[in-house]
Simulated assay, not measured.
Amino acid sequence: VKSKAVLDVLAELGPSTAKTISERTGEPVSSTYRLLDNLAAVGWVERGINRGEYRLGIDCVRIGGQIESRLDIQQIARRTFRVHRGQFGIWGLFVRRRLRTVCIETRT
């Protein structure tokens, strides 16, 4: 649970210091350093470019990419919209990432 909280903070904020992670997770800074060291040992976290920062490790990013490549969001959306066929005139599948939105597909 604690490790997941650290990973969630790094995913949300990007590269962060142990102090910032500690404040966000509610864990003492000393415990946060231990968690970061353990996560770094298995490749889930690595030291950031700036001194004292940590970021998601390459293993974490690689696994996320594998999961994303297997997820066919268009197919999932099509199934949902087929159930509601005729109830919508035009529909679109948009993916929002922070302040940007990308249109994946539109149908009439």
Score class of each variant (00 low, 15 high):
Arg107Gln: 10
Thr101Ile: 12
Tyr33Lys: 06
Ser30Met: 05
Gly89Asp: 11
Gly64Leu: 08
Gly48Ser: 12
Trp44Thr: 01
Gly65Ile: 02
Phe88Met: 05
Val29Asp: 08
Ala41Leu: 06
Leu13Arg: 13
Asp37Arg: 09
Leu7Gln: 01
Asp37Tyr: 13
Glu53Arg: 13
Val45Pro: 01
Ile73Tyr: 10
Arg100Thr: 14
Gly52Asp: 07
Arg100Met: 10
Arg107Lys: 08
Arg98Thr: 12
Thr108Asn: 11
Phe94Trp: 12
Val1Ser: 02
Ala5Asp: 08
Lys19Tyr: 09
Ala5Arg: 02
Arg70Gly: 07
Leu36Ala: 09
Gln66Thr: 01
Arg97Ala: 14
Ser31Leu: 11
Val95Arg: 14
Arg78Tyr: 03
Gly65Pro: 00
Ala40Thr: 13
Arg97Asp: 14
Arg70Tyr: 01
Ile90Pro: 02
Gly26Leu: 04
Ser69His: 06
Trp44His: 09
Leu13Gly: 00
Thr32Gly: 04
Arg85Ala: 13
Arg96Asp: 11
Arg55Thr: 14
Gly26Lys: 00
Arg78His: 08
Leu13Tyr: 10
Ile73Val: 12
His84Gly: 07
Arg47Tyr: 05
Gly52Trp: 09
Arg78Val: 04
Phe94Pro: 00
Glu46Tyr: 08
Ser31Asn: 13
Ala40His: 06
Cys103Gly: 14
Glu46Leu: 06
Leu56Ser: 05
Arg98Asn: 15
Leu71Ile: 10
Arg24Cys: 02
Arg85Ser: 13
Gly14Trp: 02
Thr80Met: 10
Ile90Cys: 07
Gly57His: 00
Glu23Gln: 07
Ile49Gly: 06
Arg85Cys: 02
Gly52Val: 07
Ile104Glu: 08
Ser30Pro: 01
Arg97Gln: 14
Leu39Thr: 05
Leu36Gly: 05
Gln87Asp: 13
Phe94Ala: 11
Gln87Tyr: 11
Glu68Ile: 09
Ser30Tyr: 04
Val6Asp: 03
Ser30Gln: 08
Val1Ala: 01
Arg82Phe: 02
Gly64Gln: 08
Arg107His: 08
Gly64Arg: 13
Arg47Thr: 11
Gly92Gln: 15
Lys4His: 03
Arg96Gln: 14
Thr106Gly: 00
Asp8Trp: 03
Val95Ile: 13
Val9Asn: 05
Phe88Arg: 08
Val83Asn: 14
Val102His: 12
Ile76Trp: 09
Thr25Trp: 03
Ile58Met: 14
Gly65Val: 03
Ala5Val: 04
Ser16Cys: 12
Arg62Trp: 00
Ile90Arg: 14
Arg34Trp: 10
Arg24Trp: 00
Ser69Trp: 02
Leu36Trp: 06
Glu46Pro: 08
Ile21Ser: 03
Leu93Tyr: 09
Gln87Cys: 09
Ile104Cys: 07
Glu46Ile: 09
Ile90Tyr: 10
Arg78Gln: 10
Lys2Gln: 09
Thr32Trp: 07
Ser3Thr: 01
Lys2Ile: 06
Asp37Trp: 12
Arg47Ala: 10
Leu99Pro: 02
Val6Gln: 04
Val6Phe: 03
Thr17Lys: 15
Asn50Gly: 06
Tyr54Asn: 08
Leu10Met: 01
Gly65Cys: 02
Leu99Tyr: 11
Thr101Pro: 01
Asp72Cys: 03
Val9Cys: 04
Gly26Pro: 03
Leu39Arg: 01
Gly92Val: 03
His84Leu: 15
Val6Lys: 00
Arg51Leu: 13
Thr25Leu: 02
Glu46Gln: 14
